[in-house]
Design a protein around this nucleic acid. Structure first.
Lengths: 195, 195
DNA sequence: GGATCTCTCTACCAATTGGTAGAAAGCGGG
DNA sequence: CCCGCTTTCTACCAATTGGTAGAGAGATCC
């Protein structure tokens, strides 16, 4: 793997867990076995690195979502929800920092969120569109497609990433508990969506 | 208001919006019209300040939740959900930084989350308990009270705080849109919960 | 008036931050 | 073997970080 790619990967992990402000270029370089000047050779500033990392994260996230879009009937809203949940939970296991980064980037007043949102605009529009049709035909419960989509997003991302809240409730995060969470989430969403 | 209280309040706002790492003692002092040494007079370190702020946030959050508990029939789960939604959305308007701080503190791997969780343990237990009874009596849909509570929490907090995602979907945050979001959220939760 | 206590200040400090300048090291082609 | 290109390094730097030491201001008590 190229050095540039290694930097992006390691930075994504660090930004997504420790946060951007909590990650210094020196610490990042140490983790990579380099000097920070080598990082600044590939990315002209920390801000530029962050934007590249965000782009990388968007690419990976979109690539995952595309697998759902491709394999699932766009008219079957419930199958789309199931697929999305599967994808998000797979990321929660395999690359939790990616979800952490999305969370960080979508912090209120973040300003970098626009960058992400423009990348995801197509997916959002498509999802909203098929949701609207399903609503009109009565195949899904609800009034406003956009707000419903937003509720779905909040629920799925929250259940997948809020592990500390779960710990506060006495559930130690594990693969087992993650699977249970996912099952309960699917049940919850099914009741809420399917008439 | 005492200087100590002013420091706590301002720090809560700053920590909750800019983040802890993103808030320097100098910047905080500037905002207060003081020198940072005055802050360190009341709180012996930044970490100590953060913990005090977290405690303050927990106090305020608990005080709000208590109003729900007091005024609502503990057996009426739906009324409790409604009350909680009302409280959280009121905070989203009046003190968004408080919710931002909770979000920051509940970041995966945060370690400070234990402090919060011990403060909220009573409320969590009580909620879980009445949810269990309601489940057993078939007044609420679902299997596992704890996981259901977790789904509810994720949905409510997400819908109340993920304003950047909403913006990405083309909805400019405003009081009006907040009210719509709340209404849609209540509809969504009602369908999901009440048989 | 002096002593004491509470509070806020000035004056520093060592460490760390993101970033610049430019030297060396490696390497492939001529 | 040497030239030129890419890559990584050492050597710095100014600004900012959290934090210490202690002086001075202001009020209160005797």
């Amino acid at each position: 793997m190229s050095t540039q790619q290694r930097i992006l990967d390691t930075a994504l992990d660090s930004f997504g867990t420790t946060g951007v402000d909590g990650t210094s270029l020196d610490a990042l370089a140490r983790e990579l076995g380099l000097r920070k000047q080598s990082i600044l050779y590939y990315f002209k500033s920390k801000q530029a690195l962050f934007e590249a990392v965000l782009d990388e994260a968007a690419n990976q996230f979109i690539a995952e979502l595309d697998q759902v879009v491709e394999r699932v009937d766009p008219n079957d809203v419930w199958a789309q929800v199931e697929g999305t949940v599967r994808v998000v939970f797979r990321l929660a296991v395999q690359r939790p920092a990616l979800l952490g980064l999305l969370r960080e980037a979508s912090r209120p007043g973040s300003m970098v969120a626009v960058q992400l949102s423009s990348r995801l605009a197509n997916h959002i529009d498509a999802a909203q569109h098929s949701l609207e049709i399903a609503l009109k035909e009565g195949r899904v419960r609800g009034d406003d497609a956009r707000l419903l989509l937003f509720s779905l997003y909040s629920t799925i991302m929250g259940v997948a990433t809020e592990v500390e809240v779960l710990r506060a409730m006495g559930v130690e995060p594990s693969l087992r508990s993650l699977a249970e969470r996912r099952q309960e989430l699917l049940r919850f969403l099914h009741v809420a969506l399917v008439p």
